[in-house]
Design a protein around this nucleic acid. Sequence first.
DNA 1: CAATCAAACATTTTT
DNA 2: TGTTTGATTG
Length: 719
Amino acid sequence: MFSDHLAGLNPEQLRAVTLGAGSALVLAGAGSGKTRVLTTRIAWLIANQRAMAANIMAVTFTNKAAREMHTRLSAMLPLNPRGMWIGTFHGLANRFLRAHWRDAGLPQTFTILDMQDQLAAIKRLMKALQVSDEKFPPRQVQAFINNHKEQGLRAEALKPYDAFNAKLTELYAAYDAQCRREGVVDFAELLLRSYEMLNSNEALREHYRARFSHILVDEFQDTNKLQYAWLCLFAGPHASVFAVGDDDQSIYAFRGAEVGNMRRLMADFQVGEPIKLEQNYRSCGNILDAANALIQHNDGRLGKNLWTDAGAGEPIRLYRGWNDADEAQFIVDEVRALRRDGGALAEMAVLYRSNAQSRVLEHALFQAGLPYRVYGGLRFFERQEIKHALAYLRLVASPDDDNALLRVINVPARGIGARTVENLQTASRERGVSLWQAACGQGGGRSAASLGKFVLLIEQLRADAERLSFAQLVSHLIAASGLRAMYEADKDGEDRLENLDELISAAVSFAPEDPAQIIAEFLAHASLEAGEHQAGAGEDALQLMTVHAAKGLEFASVFVSGLEEGLFPHENSLNDAHGVEEERRLMYVAITRARQRLYLTQAQQRMLHGQTRYPLPSRFMEEIPASLTKNLSETMTAGLSSRGNHGTRPAPAAPRHQASTNAVLPGGWRIGQSVTHPKFGSGVILNAEALGEELRLYVNFAEHGAKWLDMRFAKLTPA
DNA sequence: CAATCAAACATTTTT
DNA sequence: TGTTTGATTG
């Protein structure tokens, strides 16, 4: 019976799942069972004949979330997997454009540029246009293009306000022209193109609007302007939009996400009050209380308070180390203790604000012999050997793909140097043809022989594609191109060879929707789903990642490290209030990852960019009620670390009441300490910087303002 | 063309 | 401080 699926729901969840027609906004707190609500809602709609599978579109941000939804759904219902549109924004846009490639003005086998490909394309374009990459850093151009596309703005729609901006706009237009010429689309283009096409094609629009009566959106707080417009276009005036999100977990504003879309939705789709899912099934009471107390410091929230019936649980443990190494050692010791008590390493995570912080942690973990896994970094389909192989595959599918051709024309080295490539580019520009066509037409050049061999290789591969199965083709192309031999000759090529074999396995098991389009579909899959973040799964290992990467995950024990002003909240976000609020939401996300045990750690002294810093404790620490915490720092016992003292322990000297909150600097100075200077009078130490023997203090003088003083010379005395 | 060196840079990054 | 990028050089 379907009602079994409803039985375990709490009243709010049940209400959300069984809503009638009309649009709704579900404010789903961390750990409140939002995925369950989303999937049960879909199942309920179908089971009660409110909709058929084909009438449903469910949109997520990550492939992982889409997969999970699909898996859970098929456990509840016998599903026609192709009938329902479940996927990421980009995945669905891709599906849409593949179905209507002609209307979209795209070649049938259009390929998708990932960020790397896009950057390469931009660099190539700028070289051709002779634009200085000094004045216009390609990354900035890329950001300019993507930001505007995500605002729904084409180059023609922009009004440049100065020469610099005008040049960027010009590059944007030229880039789009290049993409059209080459039949490629970048990530943002998938959405923008499908948006524009549906917007201008009434018949198609009515068709899809009639089809999708229910549109469900996950992580709605992360939608950007274009995604919102895209959804509105598909929804039309009649569809029911069911949006699930949490404004307190909006941590991607820096990438264009607009939390305001939640309020916008309420206004645009006549949503009454949002349904709040506040019961949390993940964390203990103390952890939730801390999260609630913290997030209350933000303004303009939709308002929500997490609660649990699980009991208060353990106190939140605080630790303040002398320096970053000491902080890391503390974490190592605690992890060992937790493990002794039977905890699995995979159920523990160390979170940090920025990737650079992982080094010190990794060092300590390595020394301790604790297995760990760092998230982030290169993913499977982003590895160079994989991209090389895919480039050959792309040339087989469409030899006019200049990006792909440039990538592998001389990989492995086959005597086609930069000179030859430049000639080729000149020829292609002059004759207005692709590089491939230019290469084919290149008769008597000096390097004609090696170029001719390359042309022959690709032509041969294209012929082979006719007779081989897809998997055979992939395998064959890796060998025939010389890639395999190249990595076999490389003494460090073992991993790369393994990855190439894994690519063949992926090709073997790849199930295309349209077998005739298997190459295009495989390539799209590679771009849209870059693959799991590196291998290394299986072994029980401590999980290291940024707070951003931890969103959506949960662990029995969580360490949030580096809780210092300037790091977390990050100094670059201190300028405006919105920045600090986003940092606070990030902290909220970090806290709510923990089920049973939460540690908040910091260091009094930290090496950053080759400079020693003496940061103040993070403001977020003070926003957590002391009644929920337990301090494990050695500063409380005034003794040396029982875990071993790392680095030089700062000189004692400070009065206790201040020493407990503020860092002790070399020489016994403290941040916040009142001092007197013979010339400047009285002041307060605001900040410090140490470089070897040199110590500089930033002192705010009552009469003379804030000054940096070199303590090798300055005559400063405690007030 | 590969190897080596200096310079620049260092927040987060679902697709 | 440590890494990545590019430019230079053999």
